[in-house]
Design a protein around this nucleic acid. Structure first.
Lengths: 336, 336
DNA sequence: CAGCTTTGTGCAACCAGATGTGCAACGTTT
DNA sequence: AAACGTTGCACATCTGGTTGCACAAAGCTG
């Protein structure tokens, strides 16, 4: 049995399709009797309006796109959950787009999704300089960024990455460390540049002379820190503490330290950023700067939906607002 | 500027909309000249056909649904990646649905997605007894299951869960263990029942007398193994090895053992199932039975798409096939 | 009770494509 | 040159729902 359509409902209720539509969407006068007949017919036929037809007519799909670099990086499932929970509650469906940090793939997704009358985008990707995202916003498409610099021209939710590493470095210095290394992600990603800046500024603030060798620069992926850590520890710049640009980097660094026979935290303290759930399960449990990932996702979704609905009513976007969430230093057992 | 539609292209090229459609879909005669003019107009207007209109007319959306219990369980992002990669390559978009193991939410998703003319479903969820999934298949909707028992009535991709724990238990016995505990997930999930069966059968096979106390039964979530492990280790049934029903459970168990002062593997060996990437980073690196999660996702997507396209051509589904993938015992340092 | 507003419903146009039908122009055969 | 088949395109219809307009019936006011 094929799905019932609005005409089936109309003829069963003995009215016209237009009246059925008005009844279900409730924006016009319908008598109590007719309404009851129609609702009965809807129930009997288990009628549910065809989304494609609605989308075609309305030019919007009640669908959001969440664009992330990789679902396999454990921070994104948490953000995703935050987005989805809010979206579902408000009657929106979320399409998840994995770009694998590939700009072309990101562009393809955008173009494909526009084709689907998508209502708005959340970009949690991190590549720099994306003119096409600004163009989207300028074309009037609702857009929210997560953890991505944007010069206040686009709605965004982010943490103060500078403050996060500034705090972590301060903590390490306050517990007596004077040689502190930093595990840096790709230079092209502003999140990591800000985090490096916080680290450098905190060192300077304490009058600690910085050695460029203290910065371990990721090359082909988080695994690159395995050998970077080995070399650094074997060099004359061997630090007593390592600040990792993310928890995942910290995990690899810890693995490397264990394999080289160093004790954490006795020989080296390690601290991460993100505070993903697994960090508490590591041996030793990882100290970390917590990011409210779920809240960032849910706030991003709320902001996006309010843009969408404001645009629906007025045809205009609201002026962009950047929200900065606070981080918190969580001290476990990987730091001394 | 609003998006160009087929009429804009047609009038720019000086032909009718029908001819534009035929040119782009290529199933009828179009002269070389007209074709060239149309393609030029398409390019100039950056025309891309409206997906909603296509879906409405065709009754299908080139969209797949991937239904999973939780995106925060690290095995699912890997499966998801496998599904997405194949889907994208074949021109399909994937909608990810998180049920949080809630049957009602699963039903809601299904009903909502049918409304969107979804082409097919992949269920990687684990709840037992879902009549509505069988009904879907019977209604002619393409469905593929991942890791879910189904009596061969529906296409499926799974591993031999019995064999996985049978092998792991055998390995533990072969290295001298005689008291082996098992960390069991929810009784309602057939995956875990099969895993328990493999464990029990291997014990029997080696003539080891089983004590029911050896089974740690998850209550409110993976964290429940923290105290379960503590109690078990303090009891008279203290095992020399623990087989965890999943890597995540193993992580919590290791955390608990460390906190109680036990050495892994000297005091207790621990082995997991799944072999997620993080297992290699644990201290000690976790031995585990590997599941080809990415391949399971990609195979599921391939199977689903071939069902979809076969149905498109013939109006019928192909008879269901259940594929069993092989597991592999990966020995690292958490076992002695 | 005439004239007005309020309420209630149907009709038809519209969203953006896909596709069957029909007709015209052309080339080929007899 | 008439008869015929092929090619190329326009027109109209269809997908399923929304919505402006017309119109009618009812309720209200003067």
């Amino acid at each position: 049995m094929a799905r019932a359509n609005i005409k089936d409902v109309a003829s069963l209720a003995g009215v016209s399709p237009g009246t059925v539509s008005r009844t279900l969407n409730g924006n016009s006068y319908v008598s109590k009797d007719t309404r009851a007949k129609i609702l009965a017919a809807v129930k009997e036929l288990n009628y549910q309006p065809n989304a494609a037809a609605k989308t075609l007519k309305a030019g919007r799909s009640h669908t959001l796109a969440l664009v992330i670099p990789s679902i396999q990086n454990p921070i994104f499932p948490i953000v995703t959950q935050g987005v989805e929970d809010v979206a579902n509650m408000q009657g929106y469906t979320t399409i998840l787009c994995n770009t694998n940090e590939d700009t072309n793939r990101e562009k393809q997704y955008i173009s494909n999704l526009l084709t689907r009358s998508i209502d708005g985008f959340i970009f949690a990707t991190i590549t720099e300089k994306a003119d096409y995202i600004y163009e989207l916003r300028e074309k009037g498409v609702p857009v929210v960024l997560v953890n991505r610099r944007n010069d206040d021209e686009i709605d965004a939710v982010q943490i103060d990455n500078f403050q996060a590493t500034f705090d972590a470095t301060n903590y390490l210095v306050s517990t007596g460390h004077k040689t502190i290394a930093f595990a840096m992600g790709h230079e092209s990603i502003n999140v990591y540049r800000d985090r490096r800046e916080g680290y450098l500024t905190a060192l300077k603030h304490h009058g600690i002379r910085f050695h460029p060798e203290w910065i371990m620069q990721e090359t082909y992926g988080p695994e690159s820190f395995y050998s970077l850590t080995k070399s650094l520890m074997a060099s004359e710049y061997r630090p007593t503490a390592i600040l990792a640009g993310s928890d995942i980097k910290a995990f690899t660094i810890m693995r490397s330290l264990h394999d080289s026979g160093y004790k954490i935290p006795e020989d080296v303290s390690v601290i991460g950023i993100d505070n993903i759930p697994l960090s508490a399960l590591m041996e030793p449990p990882l100290s970390s700067v917590s990011q409210p990932l779920y809240q960032m996702g849910s706030l991003a979704a709320k902001k996006l939906i309010s843009q969408i609905e404001h645009k629906e009513e007025t045809g205009q976007l609201l002026p962009p607002v950047v929200d900065i969430m606070t981080t918190e230093l969580i001290i476990r057992k990987s730091t001394l």
